[in-house]
């Protein structure tokens, strides 16, 4: 289902690859539509829960289906790089999973086109938004997510200050790990903890490419989303609503499919813990209020956008 002919030159495009996410889609689409995204380009990988049918009915969604291996396509990056090359050139493109929700400075009063216009005016081509793992208080299975609901009503907690940052000299990006997953699942082998650095919003050029997920880009200059001389560049967060009651089933399914990064280490670790029905919440967890809170906590920055 290709509706890309409807894309206008100034449109902000959302790219996503997903599988069996029907329950999340209504809120996901609404969130980014309200923010000012104009078109969704989605690769669907062998869903059997009605995801495909649901997306086909959406007037602003172009859908590609692939039954092929997610892993062989380098975890979907190849699919999206191809789509971005073909349709993203000259547009601001946002690459997000259906459980990732972008927040940026002033997002409650200024739509995404305002941010993109400002980035254009400032000659900035890429915008960083660190992945912020959100989780509920109490075991994950306790509250059931209803389709269309704001997932942050359930997963409204996060870790405010346990992130480990290092520079990746090969690609020039920062490598960020930490949060509840590191402390709960990877405390004894931190190197394996999932990367949280993301650069999801890019003024795309057909010569660009994501190297691994949206963690890093080529050419390397696009990864320089941080200031090295003491200042702060503007940045946002991707609220990551992965940890809902749907997670357990998803983790098991993904493990049997063995289609994930680094021999699915991450999912093995989850599956091992999931039987204990873990509670990611701790006394020091912070309850999400708004972007200003994240800014004050130092998880994101306004930079010189005022």
């Amino acid at each position: 289902m290709n509706r890309t002919a409807a894309i206008k030159p100034q449109d902000i495009l959302v790219f996503s690859t997903l599988r069996n996410e029907k329950i999340r889609l209504p809120y996901f689409l609404r969130y980014y539509r309200d923010m000012g995204a104009s078109h969704f380009l989605i690769v669907e990988n062998g869903s059997d829960d009605g995801t495909r049918e649901y997306l086909m009915d959406q007037p602003d969604v172009s859908l590609w289906s692939s039954g092929k291996s997610y892993k062989r396509a380098r975890f979907g990056v190849d699919w999206l790089n191809w789509l971005q090359m073909k349709y993203g050139h000259g547009h601001w493109t946002l690459v997000v999973d259906p459980d990732e929700f972008l927040v940026y400075p002033f997002c409650d009063t200024r739509p995404l086109p305002a941010l993109c216009d400002w980035l254009d005016a400032s000659s900035i081509k890429s915008f960083s938004a660190m992945l912020l793992d959100m989780y509920p208080k109490g075991p994950l299975i306790d509250v059931a997510y209803r389709s269309g609901q704001d997932p942050m009503e359930i997963a409204s907690w996060f870790d405010s200050g346990n992130y480990m940052i290092a520079k990746n000299h090969k690609f020039g990006n920062l490598w960020i790990q930490g949060g509840p997953r590191a402390r709960e699942f990877f405390y004894d082998r931190p190197r394996r903890a999932p990367a949280l650095n993301k650069i999801p919003l890019v003024k795309w050029d057909r010569s660009y490419a994501y190297v691994s997920s949206t963690h890093m880009l080529l050419p390397r200059g696009l990864n320089l989303v941080y200031d090295e001389w003491g200042g702060e560049k503007a940045s946002g967060c991707l609220l990551h609503a992965k940890f809902l009651n749907t997670f357990s089933a998803k983790a098991k399914e993904e493990l049997t499919r063995a289609q994930h990064y680094a021999a699915s280490h991450e999912y093995k670790a989850y599956a091992a813990k999931m039987d204990e029905n873990p509670d990611l919440w701790c006394k020091w967890s912070e309850r999400y209020i708004n972007w200003r809170q994240l800014e004050i906590l130092g998880l994101m920055s306004k930079g010189n956008w005022a």
Partner: peptide, 24 residues
């Protein structure tokens, strides 16, 4: 204030968009 944040940043903060070089 915005210019200050962009050029000097918050002391002691290391984050996704502030990663100062040694000495800065």
């Amino acid at each position: 204030h915005a210019v200050d944040r962009r050029t000097r940043g918050r002391a002691g903060l290391w984050m996704q968009s502030r990663f100062p070089n040694e000495g800065w």
